[in-house]
């Protein structure tokens, strides 16, 4: 059974009398341990699809099976719980809490996902994650004192801290220069290979997409191509 299984997913935005179909029937499976790049021109519906996959948004039609469960009809709280247990997010603009140390930023999700843990245990988990992304010496730094690449690494550590099955990254390298982007992609590859975490990343840059194992191209809300680069 696939980790993700989309059946004819549709998303239409309604603005007054106007209706704007953004996703026009997406059918797609993603297996465990895959690393998928979602590409397409700006406005092709990548982020919209990503939000549905990440349980932040609900489709207006179709079925979304995640880890053997139909997700599309769940309530807000139920979707929060799914995000909580199974999903990690990495954003283009990092979205770190300002005036909060890297370590505090990393363990923030544990306050919701693993509240039963002791403070010390949480800090240990946070430290471990920061070490994994190579920021062992930056734990007490606040975001304002970190470079963009370092901030994104903190964000990756935060996405991984509750040990999700799948990480969604929407244009994670969009705000970074080439060198920093390579570093971020290397980390994604590593967690995908070593920990078997499934990764779906959105990008419109082809060379970024090349680092994934599979490239899905969207065009006008439909899948225009689906290529497996390597297994």
């Amino acid at each position: 059974m696939s980790l993700i299984s989309l059946k004819d997913i549709q998303k239409t935005y309604y603005m007054g009398d106007m209706s704007l179909p953004v996703l026009k029937g997406i059918t797609l499976d993603v297996e465990r341990g895959e690393m998928v790049a979602l590409t397409g021109v700006s406005g092709s519906g990548k982020s919209t699809l990503m939000n549905i996959l990440g349980c932040l948004d609900r489709p207006t039609g179709g079925e979304y099976w995640l880890d053997g469960k139909e997700i599309s009809k769940l309530s807000n709280d139920e979707r929060a719980d799914v995000r909580n247990k199974k999903i990690g997010f990495v954003f283009q603009n990092f979205n770190l809490l300002s005036r909060t140390t890297a370590l505090e930023n990393v363990i923030m999700p544990l306050g919701y996902t693993a509240a039963h843990l002791s403070e010390k245990k949480m800090l240990d988990m946070g430290k471990e994650m920061l070490e994994r992304v190579g920021l062992a010496d930056r734990m007490d730094h606040e975001p304002s004192r970190l470079s963009g690449g370092q901030q994104q690494r903190v964000a990756i550590a935060r996405a991984l801290v509750n040990r999700p099955q799948i990480v969604f990254a929407d244009e994670p390298t969009g705000n970074l220069d080439t060198k920093m982007s390579e570093e971020i992609l290397r980390i994604f590859n590593e967690i995908n290979e070593k920990d078997g975490v499934t990764i779906v990343l959105v990008t419109h840059e082809m060379d970024v997409a090349q680092s994934a194992k599979r490239i899905i191209k969207l065009k006008d809300g439909e899948i225009s191509s689906d290529t497996v680069l390597r297994k």
């Binding site: 990440g54 932040l56 807000n76 709280d77 929060a80 719980d81 995000r83 909580n84 247990k85 990690g88 997010f89 979205n95 809490l97 923030m108 999700p109 919701y112 996902t113 935060r158 509750n162």
Partner: peptide, 10 residues
Amino acid sequence: GLRMAVGARG
């Protein structure tokens, strides 16, 4: 938004 994304309920 971030807190909600990482699993905070309303």
